[in-house]
Design a protein around this nucleic acid. Structure first.
Lengths: 256, 256
DNA sequence: AAATAGCTTTGATTCAGATCAATTAAACAG
DNA sequence: CTGTTTAATTGATCTGAATCAAAGCTATTT
């Protein structure tokens, strides 16, 4: 079994509504979330239960963490939608990622023990705090947990390389297609429709992430709609022809 | 002390010629390289000695690993200079990084256990192979090693975010300035001159990394030279005014 | 329900960088 | 040393995206 499903599910469908019925103490539910899919035994689950300490709610627009503050914990997203962004001295900010249920935030801060980005909720969200020192301790005892944690970090690196490719060599329309397909895939993995979803972020935030201006993003949306590949109604997106959307992306494989 | 100095030295000056006198068995020398700076005890060094198995030489133009092949080991660069690049279906390739002595390659492959990029030597190079399974085992026994390994992975994520920022929001000249300053800093950290060095890569490879065409890279070099900020003689670069080069970069901090 | 503020779209214009093209310079093999 | 290949520079032109500008639309507040 793969712990995959939980800390940062990517492969298997997993509706985040599923977890709503496991609503005992925070430790218990997070623990279940974290461990059940890995095939850990009861004792191991017990151990891990102590790691995932408390749960935090962040309102839309609220900060999970700020750049420059001390790093102590990773955060597993239980529900909601967040963006991470680095901010430049002049005040402008660049979005480095959008994050949804099951994903793990804070990996960048391990190196210096200072957060290198802001994490901001784009809708009301809930996260589990995972004290990093404890996670390290426990991963010594549970090898499969350590292994999985390493894979998660590595996957983040691969994802970033994908974005670098996108930013370095794709045109506006290709970038947007890639972005939409990426979202689509992640919604699907969580049990939602892959062809019908609502964007949580503004055109400006999409543009920031894709290295484009908001007007360009808007025009790219319109273009894809004109071609009947997607239907855009403000934040509501329908993918009418996913195959052609994939074509739009060029030959480049979909960014993780 | 920081293991930092070794696996991926960034902070402290460390001339890679220094290690030339430690030339016993591969295990021993790599082991010294890996451990001495971390302040591990003799027993721990002994343990780690078994991990870093054998040394490999790669000729200029040779591959350290290919995309799609099975991942088994990380590689610590002992000497030389390599690039990593992902290749698209249509044959074009994008450089995702340039790597020098002390840096660790292969982190991206941990997630799927398949290499996601090619690693190609830009000059004759030497690497130490570190079987990943063994590294994981041993890091359970030596917490400071595990901690350091996590920091290395995290640092790679931060570096990638820096490149994303560069690709997403900087102009050609700013990108080149940022690139040169990054190289400069890394040479300095290895005991070389920060203002006088030879590029190991072509304009095309720089362009690929920076999301620019080779002509644009060439023009940006010329521009910086016209302004007397640098002196370019083919692959040989002299930084005449590092302060002004930093200004060129805009307010953006230097990409790690 | 009206008012305000925040998004989004669309058009017109400008500009940075891509592309096309020609030359020069360096590296390499025979 | 000479011919050949590969890399780098520089110029001219073209183009995709940025910028500037003006509506139109949503959502939130009162």
């Amino acid at each position: 079994m793969h712990l995959d499903k939980i800390l940062s599910l990517e492969t298997s469908p997993h509706n985040h509504l599923d977890i709503s019925h496991i609503k005992s103490s925070c430790a218990t539910c997070s623990l279940r979330e974290l461990c059940l899919p890995v095939g850990l035994n009861e004792q191991e689950i017990q151990i891990l239960g102590d790691v995932v300490s408390h749960k935090r709610k962040i309102q839309r627009g609220g900060y999970l963490h700020h750049t420059g503050t001390k790093f102590q914990s990773l955060f597993a997203i239980r529900s909601g939608f967040l963006k991470t962004c680095v901010l430049e001295e002049d005040g402008r900010q660049q979005v480095t990622g959008f994050h949804m249920t099951g994903e793990l935030l804070g990996l960048d801060a391990i190196s210096t023990e200072i957060h290198t980005c802001d994490a901001i909720a784009l809708e009301d969200s809930e996260v589990c705090e995972i004290p990093f020192l404890k996670l390290e301790e426990i991963s010594r005892v549970i090898p499969s947990l350590m292994r999985h944690f390493h894979k998660i970090m590595s996957r983040e690196i691969v994802r970033d390389h994908g974005v670098m490719l996108l930013l370095g060599s794709m045109k506006a329309e290709e970038r947007l297609a890639s972005f939409l397909l990426n979202l689509s895939r992640r919604f699907l993995a969580r049990g939602y429709s892959e062809c019908d979803f609502n964007l949580r972020m503004t055109r400006e935030e999409i543009g920031s992430y894709l290295g484009l201006k908001l007007e360009t993003v808007s025009r790219a949306f319109s273009k894809l709609q004109e071609e009947n590949i997607i239907t855009v109604d403000n934040k509501h997106i329908q993918i009418n022809d996913i195959a052609r959307l994939r074509m739009k992306m060029g030959n480049t494989s979909c960014v993780t």
